Amino acid sequence: MNKVPMTEGGFQNLKEELRWRQQEERPRIIEAISEARAHGDLSENAEYHAAKEAQSLNEGRVGELEDLIARAEVIDVSKLSGDKVKFGATVVIVDEDTDEEKTYQIVGDQEADVKGGRISVSSPIARALIGKGVGDTIEVNAPGGARGYEILKVKWA
C-alpha cells in the first residue's frame, strides 16, 4: 500500500470533507430517496433516480476519501528546512521569457490548487524543481512549448 504525501492542512481538509459527506450529505440523500419513493412508481420517477445517482457518487467519494486518509503520509512542513526544493517548499520562480514571478508551494496531489499557489508534487513543474536550489534554472515542457524558469527563493512555511 503506497503512501500519499500531504500537508497537515490537506489532511484536515480531507477529514472534514469525509465528515461532511458521512454526517450531512448522506442523511440528506437518504431523505431525498425516501421522499421520492413516497411519490409512487419508481420506474418513471426522475427524482428517485437522481437521488440514487447522488447517493452512488457520494458513497464513491466516501470510499476514495477513506482510502486516501488511510494511506496519508502527513508531512509537517514547519519542521522542514534546507536550500533545495522538496515536498512542502514554497518556491519563487521567474519566467525567463516574460520576467513574470510566480510563487508555488509543492503539495500532495489531492490538495493542489494552481490558482491558490499550490502545485502537485507529481506535476511537471514540481518534478523539474525538486532537488534544485536558488539560482538554478529549469526547463518545463508546457502545452505551448518548453518554458524556462529560474529559482529565486526557496522558503519553508
Rank of each mutant, 00 (worst) to 15 (best):
V121K: 14
G82H: 01
L129W: 11
L68V: 05
E53I: 01
K102E: 10
L14G: 06
Q12P: 04
E64Y: 15
I93D: 11
W20F: 14
G60I: 03
E101K: 14
G131P: 02
E111K: 07
K79H: 05
E31L: 09
P27M: 06
D95K: 13
D109C: 07
G131K: 00
G131I: 09
R21Q: 09
K86H: 12
A89P: 06
W20Q: 12
D113F: 15
Q55T: 10
E25R: 15
W20C: 02
M6V: 03
E35I: 13
R19H: 09
E24V: 05
D99E: 10
D83A: 11
S120P: 02
R21K: 12
W20G: 11
L129Q: 05
E111M: 05
R127L: 11
I130N: 06
R127Q: 11
E66M: 05
D97S: 07
I69F: 05
K132N: 10
E66W: 00
K3L: 12
Q22H: 07
K79F: 01
E25S: 10
G82M: 00
I30H: 14
G63W: 11
S123E: 11
A112F: 15
P27D: 02
I106M: 05
A70T: 10
G88T: 01
G82V: 00
G82N: 01
A70C: 13
E101W: 09
P124F: 01
D41Y: 05
G9I: 08
V77T: 10
A46E: 04
D76W: 13
G88K: 04
R71H: 04
I75G: 15
A51P: 00
A36V: 06
L14R: 14
E64T: 13
V4F: 10
D76A: 08
V121S: 15
R127I: 12
G63C: 02
E47P: 01
D67P: 12
I119T: 15
S56D: 12
H39E: 14
E17A: 07
R118Q: 03
R21A: 03
S43A: 09
V121R: 12
R71P: 03
E25L: 08
V92Q: 04
E47T: 00
E16S: 09
G88V: 02
Q105S: 06
L68W: 02
Q22R: 14
